[in-house]
Design a protein around this nucleic acid. Structure first.
Lengths: 237, 237
DNA sequence: CAGTGGTCTAGACCACCGA
DNA sequence: CGGTGGTCTAGACCACTGT
């Protein structure tokens, strides 16, 4: 048995996606819904808040909850989408090449990013992502050894995250992303198919565990023509 | 008199920012806080949820709420930041030049983006943003006339949003942003100081009113060296 | 005015964590 | 085991919307 408010959320999502509740119409009022689902109004409100956060509805005081038209978007409505994730959704598995795999004494920049002491060692993993025969993304990962004692090249060729979550039972809880555009380095030019491109899109990722400790710093360097990022933002008030 | 849970949120934010509650420490428990603030636990929980959403704390079941170390970030922790907004925070007002201001029959692309019929007219506004003597950002706005009956060049030179919110009493409620990198058009080259840059960062903005109607489409075209985007993402589960 | 969503309460039970 | 956060309840009052 799962959450009550999440099951309510899911059934309403289905009703919206199936067209049972058309866009631009009002949802039943919170009081009606609490009767329909045989629950309290605060529980309904939790479900509606999740719907609102995920861009399905817009709540208006004194009027009701309006269903937003999602069908107009060819790309995902909310959240964080890179080309890699998108390609995976489209069923095309990116090929991964491990260019570098080592345990190093981190340079100052990385050490600062990961808040480490000068004695801590760090796994450095550099991987190329290939898609449709072209090397498009360069991923550089730095993981503190004190969080991940063991790591192999085979794991990196597969999926580091899968290993951490399934085998080590670690829980990634949140991340801070920074997107900037830089000029390509020599490394970028060597490892990627950059042809005539003069810029590279860099996503800097600071990944935290669920005890709020920063354990990984990642740079994902994308060829600009294959990059897309979608965000859904509610107004601050 | 404002909200109780928001005032609690604000006082805790101050305590975190001032260092009164250091990073990596636990907040008082929800029961303690409800006594301290003389309120119910659910109200405290609302305040803590906002803190969590904004990246100040991380809640862990069975343990407590951990304060996240923000001081390591030289840029804003959460939310959507373009160079323009950032420069404004730093007290430097960008100079605005209105290059084009007209009421047009929209081309197909714009009409589709705004979900308009072929009879609807649209305000088209093209503006250059100058900072430190350089033309860095090109903003192209398209607003449905049925939402904004009157508009002048003077308003555009100042701030469209201010006019909409203060004078017309409209409420912008949410937006969907898409970030892509493109090659500069001739218009970009003419109106911006692009020097040797071969790419341009385009933020496509779909802006909604609080009745969930799409009323504005905006393209903000940034010179890549002056662009930065920061995002704070919680894991979906 | 009646109906809507926004806030707040006091209490209950549960799942999880650490000692 | 006691303490933590996660969920849920039934009821109350308020601010806002439309008619």
């Amino acid at each position: 048995m799962t959450n009550k408010y999440l099951t309510i959320y899911n059934t309403i999502v289905e009703q919206i996606k199936s067209g049972e509740i058309p866009p631009q119409t009002l949802l039943p009022s919170e009081n009606e819904l609490s009767e329909q689902f045989n629950t309290s109004r605060e529980t309904i409100r939790k479900a509606l808040n999740v719907l609102s956060q995920n861009g399905y509805i817009q709540k208006v005081r004194g009027k009701g909850s309006i269903v937003i038209d999602l069908s107009k978007f060819d790309f995902p409505v909310s959240g964080l989408v890179s080309f890699k994730e998108l390609a995976q959704k489209m069923g095309r598995k990116p090929k991964t090449i491990v260019n570098e795999f080592s345990l190093i004494k981190p340079e100052t920049y990385i050490r600062q990013q990961l808040h480490l002491s000068s004695k801590d060692l760090v796994w450095k993993v550099v991987r190329t992502r290939e898609m449709g025969g072209e090397k498009i993304i360069l991923d550089k990962d730095f993981l503190g050894k004190k969080y991940v004692p063991h790591l192999t090249e085979e794991i990196c060729a597969d999926s580091i995250y899968q290993y951490l979550e399934n085998d080590l039972n670690m829980t990634i809880s949140f991340a801070r992303k920074e997107i900037v555009v830089e000029e390509p380095t020599n490394e970028d030019r060597t490892l990627l198919d950059l042809e005539g491109f003069h810029n590279i899109v860099v996503i800097k990722n600071y990944v935290y565990l669920d005890d709020a400790s920063l354990f990984q710093y990642t740079e994902s360097r994308h060829r600009p023509d294959k990059f897309r990022f979608v965000d859904f933002a509610r107004r601050s008030r």
